[in-house]
Simulated scan of single mutants.
Amino acid sequence: MLWFVGLGISGLEGASTSTIQVLKKADMTFFEVFTSPISKQEISKIKKLVKGKLTIAPRWMVEDGKVILELAKKKNVVLLAYGDPYVATTHLELRTRAEQDKIKTRTIHAASAITSLIGECGLHHYKIGRPVTIMRELPSLATVYYTIYENMVKGSHSLLILEFDNSSNFFLDPRDAISNLLETEKGQKRNVIDQSTFAIVASRIGSKSQKIISGKLGTLVKTDFGKPPHTIIIPGRLHFTEHDAIKIFSTCLDEPFDNSSKIVKISDQMLSRYIPKARGALEEVVKMFKDDKTLSPVIENAQLYIDDAEKFQKEGKEELAVLSIGYAEGLIDALRLSRGIDPWAQSL
């Protein structure tokens, strides 16, 4: 038997009766420490509680899983984790392997810091978009940046989990994460985030020293958030009840506001440049070849494609709009290459 047991966000202090009973009866307990920091005091409490041997399980041991699965074939084994056991994909993969090996599995679910902090911050659960992890390496933030963009376009909130490496006791500081996000904006230039973007930093959720601070990124980047763990939330479209709750539930350094209201779709950013430029280039072509009847079909089709691009954009069909303006540019470029002209230079 292999149990997957969640301790919740308060450790043994908030553990259910079922959790205590399972730990007391287990022949072997593996306590994983790579998804959340665990204090020595908490480990000591659990060691006194469990009946069998307690093993602190690093990431490699759970990912490899061979020792855990082999023992579970004959003994009553527990994989213990903070929060809910299935927030970590590694645990899901281990359970899949256990079931494939005909090892019976059972689960005790519990609150996760990731899900708990949403309510603690005063946000609506159904408005959370795709979560993403911020790593310390700056190049990796392009994925984070576009996840925030996609969530914000939908009006959803972005949950940003900060890197935690138990083996080196490394926690990514929220200030470094924010600085890297702002630096990423300089490279991407899609106007997704800036100093005025409103965000929430939730620290040590579920502990006695829990702290939630909100404000503009320009303010938060100068703020000391204390000891980890921390999570950043960049809200999208705020309901008025969320707006009010943030002001009450957090130390609010700046007035909350709707980040989604200023977001412009990347396709619209492109079209706002491409359509006027293509129309200007086509006007130059018409001036040059207004008397050349052989080019009338090419000019007419280019004009129709530009008109289609504007129509599709108004209808919210951005993909078709970009495709249409691409066809128009292709026809104009064909004239440029075949006739040795450069209408683009004149249209700038």
Rank of each mutant, 00 (worst) to 15 (best):
V50N: 09
Q303S: 14
Y149G: 09
S338G: 08
L162I: 10
R130N: 12
G340A: 05
A281P: 00
F289V: 06
L54H: 04
A88H: 00
I9M: 10
T17I: 14
T89V: 05
Q41R: 15
I263H: 02
T105M: 02
T90W: 00
E120T: 00
I341H: 11
I266P: 01
F170T: 04
V192I: 12
K154F: 01
F198H: 05
A281R: 01
I20N: 00
G155Y: 08
V192Q: 00
K311I: 06
M1W: 01
I103C: 06
E42F: 13
G122D: 04
I275T: 05
V50P: 07
I9Q: 08
I193R: 08
L159Y: 01
T143L: 07
I233C: 10
T133G: 00
K208N: 13
G236K: 09
N259W: 02
I232K: 07
D173Y: 04
R106G: 14
D101P: 00
K73Y: 02
K211F: 03
I200N: 10
G187Y: 07
K247P: 05
L94H: 01
P343S: 00
A142V: 15
I213N: 07
K277N: 10
I108P: 01
Y305H: 12
K24M: 13
K75W: 02
V221T: 10
P229L: 15
A111F: 04
G155T: 06
E137Y: 04
P343T: 02
D268G: 02
T143Q: 04
L160M: 02
K287T: 02
E284Q: 14
T105W: 05
V33E: 13
I68N: 06
P276I: 10
K66A: 12
T241M: 15
D64Y: 02
Y146M: 01
T241W: 14
G280Q: 03
D258F: 06
M28L: 15
R95L: 03
P235L: 11
I263M: 09
